[in-house]
Computed example of a mutant assay.
Amino acid sequence: MIADPPFDRPRGRPLVATLLGLVALLATAAAPALAQSGTPITASIETRDLRVGFTPGPYEDAFKAGAAPVLGAQGYRIAYAHFSTGLEVNKAVAFDEIDANVMQHSVYLKAYNERNGTDLVGIVQVPTPPMGLYSRKHRTLSAVRPGATVAVPNDPVNLERALKILRDAGWIGLKANANPVDVTELDVTANPSGIRIVPLEAAQAPRALDDVDFAAIQGNFAIFSGLKLTEALALETMTAPYINVVAVRRVHAETPWAKAIVAAYRSDAFQAAIRADRFYDGFTLPDYFR
């Protein structure tokens, strides 16, 4: 994990070393009120620090463009943490190393909770690029031939999304499965195109484009690697459960800072920032966008 600034303290410890100047300036005015209420001096300061984690993709840029200015105007200080995988960033939220993350859809979040015994929840949806089918060797879907290699994500939740793209392209038949976390290659019921499905770790898919005929790539990894949504030979039809969310621990979902994050994303300022940038053309937008 690379974090700026570094997180070298557990949540809730006093920030004495870094806040002596502030305490000195406010001591005279604050002391009577604190003495009367008994509230620790770090309580109000802690709610002003927001630690938000991201994996590679467009979500940090969107947050900085539209949500962070709104939060900053309210006095929140944002610290950005960077992770390589969703497992790492979810663990960081679960252990209160960071407050929130922006990188996953609700289906993935539910599967993570079930497998790890955690209780993370989505508090607001965010603009999300759809998964797409890309190729550096072929220009059309009709170029598929028997034996063609197709890279797909190796985690069940996103494997289902990829297989649905292949199904909609007419390349495979797919058994209906009500639970995405149970989907495997065995759910492919027909393969009239004769393709060879190659499961890969999702973040590796863009790098595999030179080695496979086609690759189903999640939108965040596609954009991070320099691919454009308009370059995809096919894009998934994204439904609400697959639109990404801001995730926090359930116990924090109703805190003032969590509500402030929700309000920042739903603000006119955030929506205007996203609509004004052509980079977000093709993204699936949450239903609060007007």
Score class of each variant (00 low, 15 high):
residue 6 P to F: 10
residue 11 R to S: 10
residue 15 L to M: 12
residue 17 A to K: 12
residue 21 G to D: 15
residue 21 G to K: 13
residue 24 A to Q: 12
residue 25 L to T: 14
residue 27 A to S: 13
residue 49 D to V: 15
residue 56 P to R: 07
residue 57 G to Q: 00
residue 57 G to L: 05
residue 57 G to C: 09
residue 59 Y to N: 08
residue 61 D to A: 15
residue 64 K to Q: 13
residue 68 A to D: 11
residue 72 G to F: 07
residue 80 Y to V: 12
residue 81 A to K: 00
residue 86 G to Q: 05
residue 93 V to C: 03
residue 95 F to P: 00
residue 96 D to E: 14
residue 99 D to K: 02
residue 107 V to G: 07
residue 112 Y to F: 15
residue 117 G to C: 09
residue 119 D to A: 09
residue 125 Q to C: 08
residue 131 M to N: 02
residue 136 R to N: 14
residue 142 S to Y: 12
residue 145 R to D: 09
residue 148 A to K: 01
residue 155 D to K: 06
residue 156 P to Y: 05
residue 158 N to G: 03
residue 159 L to G: 04
residue 160 E to R: 12
residue 164 K to G: 01
residue 170 G to K: 04
residue 183 V to C: 05
residue 184 T to M: 09
residue 184 T to Q: 05
residue 188 V to S: 03
residue 189 T to H: 02
residue 192 P to M: 09
residue 196 R to H: 13
residue 199 P to Y: 04
residue 201 E to T: 15
residue 204 Q to T: 13
residue 207 R to P: 04
residue 212 V to R: 05
residue 214 F to R: 01
residue 217 I to W: 00
residue 241 P to L: 06
residue 242 Y to R: 08
residue 253 A to P: 01
residue 253 A to D: 05
residue 254 E to D: 15
residue 254 E to Y: 06
residue 256 P to W: 00
residue 259 K to I: 07
residue 261 I to V: 15
residue 267 S to V: 09
residue 274 I to K: 06
residue 278 R to L: 12
residue 278 R to S: 15
residue 288 Y to A: 06
residue 290 R to I: 10
residue 290 R to S: 13
